[in-house]
Nucleic acid binder design. Structure first.
Lengths: 173, 173
DNA sequence: TAGTTTAGTTGGTACTAGCAACGTAAATGA
DNA sequence: TCATTTACGTTGCTAGTACCAACTAAACTA
């Protein structure tokens, strides 16, 4: 089951002053890699299962979420937000249109372009899914003290920032 | 376990400045949901790009990693570890065999079964990818103090544990 | 031994994802 | 103005992801 017996379990008692900070950093990087790996996998599969219960794929749900949060977007904008090729984004939107969760409307500023917009039904569905996933998160947080919850938030945001800065914040080629 | 497990932490007031812990929990859950969402997405896409540079898909890399960490596994065992259907796992293994990163050997204990095992080449490839991803993590951590790095690790592990407990720790049907 | 269960593969379907090649519309330039 | 270039989105192609269901073969069981 749990395969994080990898290493770094007895690391609590070591002291930074005895080790060059580079080695500590290496060890922490390894540990963080493994820890994040696990976290990401668990969440990925959890989300997939949850979302599938609503007849949406994860990508579709992510697209819907992006549209709900950001308002109407062009295809290219949606693709950039999702780190996807525009062709893939186009097909994801196709699926959402077919299911009635978004629609394409003409962009008054450019007749080539279309704005993609969640429908009322789509917005409601997203809120339902979000509530469901948040309830999961809530249950998870119940085991932590308020202070730890707060610290977790800060740290996760910092990690995201750091990763974001490193691997390209915006749209990709 | 029911909700409100840690209420009555401090004096509850009806003021929005001093929320009852249940409401704090709701708000933290929402915030954590969004923060984790972002973290997971950034990492997901980063990993995909990195791994693709080595002519491996993410699933293939995950399978290889599982086999390197756990040693030879049967198909069913690998599928369980990856939360996948055995048919999907079978095809992932096919791809890895085609590329020479794993091979199937007969299981002496059961002639129906095959043990899947990384080849020397596969193990080397995984170590290369791992080193690459860890280097990414290391660069990310450089902006954090050692204390924060430690705290991040602890928290991520706890969140993983909590998620794991909640959404089924082991293999799925 | 016959019937059942288990291990893994294969067929079928749908989604994900990127690249390349379109058609159309806008922007640019001579 | 008209031709070229650039941009927006769709579609064809290929490969990978993922499930269910049907199948073969081996192992267990009655």
């Amino acid at each position: 089951m749990s395969l994080h017996s990898d290493s770094t379990q007895k690391s609590d008692s070591d002291n930074s002053r005895d080790l060059p900070s580079g080695e500590n950093l290496d060890r922490d990087a390894r540990a963080l890699y493994d820890a994040l790996n696990q976290l990401i996998r668990v969440h990925q599969f959890r989300d997939r299962d949850r979302i599938c219960g609503y007849d949406l794929s994860v990508a579709q749900c992510y697209a819907l979420e992006t549209l709900v949060h950001q308002g109407p977007l062009r295809l290219q904008g949606l693709a950039s937000e999702m780190y996807l090729d525009k062709s893939t984004a186009s097909r994801v939107v196709d699926a959402l249109v077919r299911k009635g969760h978004v629609d394409r409307i003409a962009d008054p500023a450019d007749r080539r372009a279309a704005l993609i917009r969640p429908t009322v039904q789509g917005e409601a569905l997203y809120q339902t899914i979000r509530a469901d996933l948040i309830a999961e998160e809530r249950a998870m947080l119940e085991g932590l003290t308020p202070d730890m919850r707060r610290a977790a938030l800060t740290l996760i945001r910092q990690l995201t920032q750091a990763a974001h800065r490193r691997c390209g914040p915006g749209p990709r080629p």
